[in-house]
Design a protein around this nucleic acid. Structure first.
Lengths: 363, 363
DNA sequence: ATCGTGGGAGTAAGCGCTTACTGCGCTGTG
DNA sequence: CACAGCGCAGTAAGCGCTTACTCCCACGAT
């Protein structure tokens, strides 16, 4: 049915091996032969069969990209940069550009393993795992085992925005690109403290995620540096004002109401991320509180919509596009892994209109 | 190196054909043999080689998804729904779940063709083309030819949010899912007109895109229905107040300033989409104008951030997730094409806080 | 006891490519 | 003039699977 190498060979009056050589350009072929072959290729509209090529050469043109959900801007931006890097050079022959297989895991460990299996079937050249899910002991072990096996078969594995893999042999052939969540959270809370806030509520993400823990730790570090620890007298510290939820807007809405119920004198709320912060803002507005006059609000991630939110959100910028590009380069083997296998991406405090000094100073 | 069918066969004491049959479950195999094979598969951690399978069975586990940029929420939502539908059933054996290959074309015709070639190489089972780019005569023809060839080789082609393909034979084997842009735009402008607005500026997208044209047509239809055509005396009609740009925020910012320069008495601005609308809002604010008191603003698409924008945006909702699911089903052959090959997704006017009656009535 | 029947399993021929190995014809050297 | 050396190109053996075809054997019918 479709045109094959043999057809091209017949037309050009050469053997199929020669056609293959011309196509791949990795063997010496005389000029005249090359031209004849190329003409035949064009005349027949020949397109190589990637499956056959992959099988014979034991290579793959696919790189997997696991995200919670590409519709979420956080993952969308990451995936976009990853795809662009992975596909780079696809235009030129031998450019090394590959196809990015994007998979929504929805944060489900099962879905993650399912997709890893599918990618293993396809003998993917690389796999980038972003975000992630419930980091249960069991799940982590299962994923770890799978990744080790994949890596052993030559698949490059990159974790992005996830905790590095550790385990028995302590040096799995997996590289990691993480964000400085702790530092960002610390700077953000320092910002609020230096504005004069003392009663700060914190809306955290799911407890079992390391991102949540790191951000919370940064927050607590900043508090502790001012002597506002978990043991500080009521009303001074903010730790008791932590509420956990998921990383979405509705969760932020509910959490804000819960925080206000527990401590109506709150002057600032730090959210797990920007989406949550939007929910917090909505809840505050519905309560008749103005931002930042009554309550300051801060987010995390600095997604594109944050600058246009109402009011513009103070947040911590994660350079997602750069992180994605970096992870993509690693997955493509275009860059050697960082020493220790872990690259940390720095974050930056972005101050906008949603934070201001508390009107009724509570210090 | 890797475990192969033959290894499993040897271990189970059967032929490789039998193993294949057990794995695919499409041939009768006795219970005891089946069990023996399954045990061998598990003991050896066998994972089929998808490339070899694809080659032998002339099938493919890939479906291509072309978008302008997954980082853009519009495409992110579409891609997310597409991926979810394409991957559905991947967990069960024979569930038919496939892998979604997402490609950012950046709206470039060349990139689009490049990725189509790559997907053709991989003998993708289907390709979904969304968004798109400059719809030049030349490019359309090139893409058309490629799609016809792909379709001829059994690849299912679905266009989503693009004009249906037409041509010589007038019935290319390509199905299309379009949005009712014209109707949405008409209802939106009617909404503004019924609020009392008469001096309405329009910030359109790139001229050469059909989406732009359809939205503009809907807008003009609404105006014409009130007798406000291009020939209406100065100040009454809005057509002269059309500015073209691209579908992004900066473009909206510039366009809004331009519109105000041309007609300072403007009471409403309709934007090409929500991102553009955000730019328009920013420009108005920078000009010291309040929304909607001084000027009403409306967007298009109803992306998630629109409800949290400042103020919440009146817009036209496109059910992108449903459209993506629908397109995915078509690309997977899970649903037969609509009669005529074109399915139109209806749009819905969403009124929020960014539109209100003009304060100084200009009627 | 013979034969037909049919379910279950093996044989082997590809699928379309890559690539190690071989071979051929030419040039340069002793 | 014989022979080594080299640049090209052909031969053919896979890569790991699927599947048409064949074969075997147990079983029921005659």
């Amino acid at each position: 049915m479709a045109v094959t190498l043999a057809d091209v060979a017949a037309r050009a009056g050469v053997s199929s091996a020669t056609v293959s050589r011309v196509l791949n350009g990795n063997y010496p072929v005389s000029g005249s032969t090359r031209e004849r072959v190329q003409r035949a290729v064009e005349e027949l509209d020949y397109v190589v069969n990637g499956q056959a090529r992959a099988l014979a050469a034991a290579t793959s043109d696919l790189v997997g990209v696991l995200v919670n959900d590409v519709a979420d801007p956080f993952f969308g931006i990451l995936a976009s940069a990853l795809q662009t890097e992975i596909g780079a050079g696809a235009a030129q022959r031998g450019g090394g550009g590959k196809l990015a297989v994007v998979c929504n895991t929805g944060g489900s460990p099962e879905a993650e393993l399912t997709y890893l299996t599918l990618l293993e079937r396809q003998r993917a050249a690389g796999v980038v795992l972003t975000g992630g899910a419930v980091e249960s002991e069991e799940h982590t072990a299962a994923v770890r085992a799978r990744l080790v096996r994949l890596a052993a078969s030559g698949t490059r594995i990159v974790l992005c925005g996830r905790p590095p893999l550790t385990g028995p042999d302590d040096g799995p052939p997996v590289t990691t690109v993480t964000f400085d969540n702790r530092g960002g959270a610390r700077r953000l809370t320092e910002h609020l403290l230096s504005l004069g806030h003392r009663r700060i509520g914190y809306v955290a993400g799911p407890v079992e995620r390391s991102t949540t823990r790191h951000r919370l730790e940064g927050h607590r570090e900043a508090l502790a540096a001012r002597g506002l620890g978990p043991d500080t007298p009521e009303g001074a510290g903010a730790l008791r004002l932590t509420v956990h939820g998921s990383y979405d807007r509705p969760s932020g809405y509910d959490a804000a109401l819960e925080l206000l119920r527990r401590e109506p004198r709150l002057t600032a709320i730090v959210a797990a991320n920007d989406s949550v912060a939007l929910g917090v803002c909505a809840a505050l507005r519905d309560r008749g509180l103005s931002i930042p006059d009554d309550v300051s609000v801060a987010g995390f991630d600095d997604l594109p919509f944050s600058a246009d939110a109402c009011p513009a959100l103070t947040t911590v910028r994660i350079p997602l596009a750069e992180a994605g590009t970096r992870a993509g380069r690693l997955a493509m083997g275009r860059q050697s892994p960082p020493p220790g296998g872990v690259a940390t991406i720095t974050t930056e405090l972005i101050v906008r209109a949603s934070t201001a000094p508390p009107v009724t100073s509570g210090s």
